[in-house]
C-alpha cells in the first residue's frame, strides 16, 4: 500500500510535464480551433479540407516523411545488425553516424545547399567524371528535403535499432546456424522477427519527427510548391494571415494524422511477437 503511494508520487513529475506541455496545449489548441473568426464551429476544418491547396499539404508532407523514414529504416536495419558485435573502430563509426544529431537542421541545410547545389562539389564531381551531362537537381525540391530528413533522423533510428539488436541473445543465431541456416536465413528468420518491435518503434519516432518538418522544407525544398508541408500551412495561417484559430485547426489535423499513424503501427506491433529476445535462462 505504502509502496504504491511512493510509486504514484514518483510518477507525478512526469505526469505534470505531460499535462503542462502536451495535454493542456492540445486542448487549448482544440478549443481555439473551434472558435473561427467567422462561421460555425467546424468552419476552420471545412475550409482546410475544402481548399485543394491546403488539403494537398497532407500529401506533400507524407511524400517527404514516408520516404525519409523508410530510407532510414532500410539503411539502419542492416547496419545495426552488422554492428551488433564489437567490431574494429566501432566507436568511431557510431560517433560518425550520430554526429548529424548534434548539428541543427539549419546548419545541415546550409551545408547541403552548397554541397548538393548546381555548383556544389557533388555535381562538380559528377560532371568531371562524365557520369552526368548537366548538374542534377538535388536541392530546392522534394529530393533535397528527403535527403536532409534522412540525415537528421538517421541517428535516432540507428541507435534505437542498435539497442534492440544487441539485446538479442547471440546464441540464437548460433543455434540457427547449427540447424543449417545460412547468413540470410539467420537474419530473415530469427533476427528480423525479433527486431520487429524495435523497427515499429523506430518507424513511429522517425515518422512523427519528419511529419512535423518545417525548416528544411522551407530552406531545401520548394515551399511554394511540392514541399509546402502541413506545418508550413499552419505557420502561414497563424503568422501570415494572423488567423490563430485556423492555424490551431491545421495543427490539430496534423496531430490527428500523427496519432493515427502511431496507432496503426503500435497496434500492428502488439499483434506480432512481443516476448523476450532470449532463448531461455541466461
Amino acid at each position: 500500500m505504502r509502496r504504491d503511494r511512493i510509486g504514484l508520487l514518483l510518477l507525478c513529475p512526469a505526469l505534470l510535464l505531460v499535462l503542462a506541455l502536451f495535454v493542456y496545449p492540445l486542448f487549448y489548441g482544440l478549443r481555439l480551433s473551434l472558435q473561427p473568426r467567422a462561421g460555425g464551429l467546424f468552419t476552420n476544418y471545412t475550409d482546410f479540407f475544402g481548399d485543394a491547396r491546403e488539403r494537398e499539404t497532407i500529401v506533400n508532407t507524407l511524400r517527404l516523411a514516408l520516404p525519409a523514414t523508410l530510407i532510414n529504416l532500410a539503411l539502419a536495419i542492416p547496419l545495426a545488425y552488422r554492428m551488433r558485435r564489437r567490431i574494429w573502430g566501432q566507436r568511431l563509426i557510431t560517433g560518425m553516424f550520430v554526429l548529424p544529431m548534434t548539428l541543427g537542421t539549419v546548419l545541415l541545410a546550409q551545408g547541403m545547399l552548397s554541397f548538393f547545389g548546381p555548383r556544389g562539389w557533388f555535381n562538380k564531381t559528377l560532371l568531371l567524371l562524365g557520369i552526368s551531362e548537366e548538374p542534377i537537381r538535388l536541392v530546392h525540391n522534394a529530393t533535397g528535403v528527403v535527403i536532409s530528413l534522412s540525415i537528421a533522423e538517421f541517428p535516432v533510428v540507428f541507435l534505437l535499432l542498435l539497442g534492440f539488436v544487441s539485446g538479442i541473445d547471440p546464441t540464437l543465431e548460433r543455434a540457427a546456424q547449427m540447424l543449417g541456416a545460412g547468413a540470410w536465413q539467420r537474419f530473415y528468420r530469427i533476427i528480423l522477427p525479433l527486431m520487429i518491435p524495435g523497427i515499429a518503434t523506430a518507424f513511429a519516432l522517425s515518422f512523427v519527427a519528419t511529419f512535423a518538418v518545417l525548416p528544411s522544407a522551407v530552406m531545401l525544398g520548394q515551399p511554394a510548391g511540392e514541399t509546402r508541408v502541413i506545418a508550413l500551412a499552419a505557420w502561414q495561417a497563424a503568422y501570415e494571415r494572423f488567423d490563430y484559430s485556423a492555424g490551431a485547426a491545421i495543427a490539430i489535423i496534423m496531430a490527428g494524422i500523427q496519432l493515427l499513424v502511431l496507432g496503426l503501427v503500435l497496434g500492428g506491433r502488439s499483434r506480432l511477437y512481443r516476448g523476450p529476445a532470449t532463448g531461455g535462462k541466461g
Binding site: R174, M178, G180, P193, G275, A277, G279, G280
Partner: peptide
C-alpha cells in the same frame, strides 16, 4: 566446413530456443 553445413546437432547451456 561452415557450421550450417556440418549437419551436427547442438544443445546450448541456455537452451537457445527461438522465442518468437
Amino acid at each position: 566446413t561452415p557450421p550450417e553445413r556440418r549437419r551436427f546437432g547442438m544443445v546450448f547451456q541456455n537452451y537457445a530456443l527461438f522465442p518468437h
